[in-house]
Each structure stands twice: as structure tokens, then as C-alpha cells.
Design a protein around this nucleic acid. Sequence first.
DNA 1: CGGCTGGCGTCGT
DNA 2: TACGACGCCAGCC
Length: 99
Amino acid sequence: MTLSTRVYTKLLQVPEGKVTTYGDLAKAVGLENGQRAIGTIMKKNPFPGIVPCHRVVKSDGKIGGFVYGERVKLQMLVKEGIKIKDGKIIDFAKEKFYF
DNA sequence: CGGCTGGCGTCGT
DNA sequence: TACGACGCCAGCC
């Protein structure tokens, strides 16, 4: 059970229509300040299509990056019911999922 | 093993 | 509000 495995597991707990942040995900797996590590792990995602890495956004409500392009990530989130305006989540706090 | 990088976060200007 | 500088931690070279 590596760190990345735990991250993916936690991420799978995020339901459709909800999102989480890199920082929160880091804390969820035991890292208080491992936000960047989470980014690296997402990029190295061994289960694309299984792990919803598009539900992970920046703490200020912005989308952040995405392997297949930020526009794609944005559209996926919108399809799940999350409202996005100018690359930022509207009711971010409300859509946020707490572990 | 040492150093650099990156889908970030936070604080200061 | 916007931009730059540091700090953080797991990978990669």
C-alpha cells in the first residue's frame, strides 16, 4: 500500500457531482503539506478512467491542470453538475466533498 | 544518494 | 485583484 494507492482510494470516495482539493486529498492520506505530491501522483495516475482525477481542483476553486487539457476537465465537471465560470467553480464550498 | 521538477498552497508586495 | 517568492513531498534523472 503505497501513498499513491491510498490517494486513489480516497479519490474514489468522492461521489459524482462533488469535488475535492489537492490539499485536502493530501491531508486525507496523512500529508499536511503534500499538495504538490498529489499533483505528481495524479499525473502518474495508473488507472485513468477509473480514478476521477478531474474531481480534484485547486483550493481557490480554480480547475488546475489536467493531462487531457483543462477544457476537457472543465466539461467533465460541468456534466457532473458542477457549475463553472471563467475556469472557476461557482459554489465551490458547496460542491466540495469532505472526507 | 543528491538535485530538480511539478496538474499546489500561502503569504507578502 | 494580480504576480512573485518560498515551502512542501513523492518521483524521476
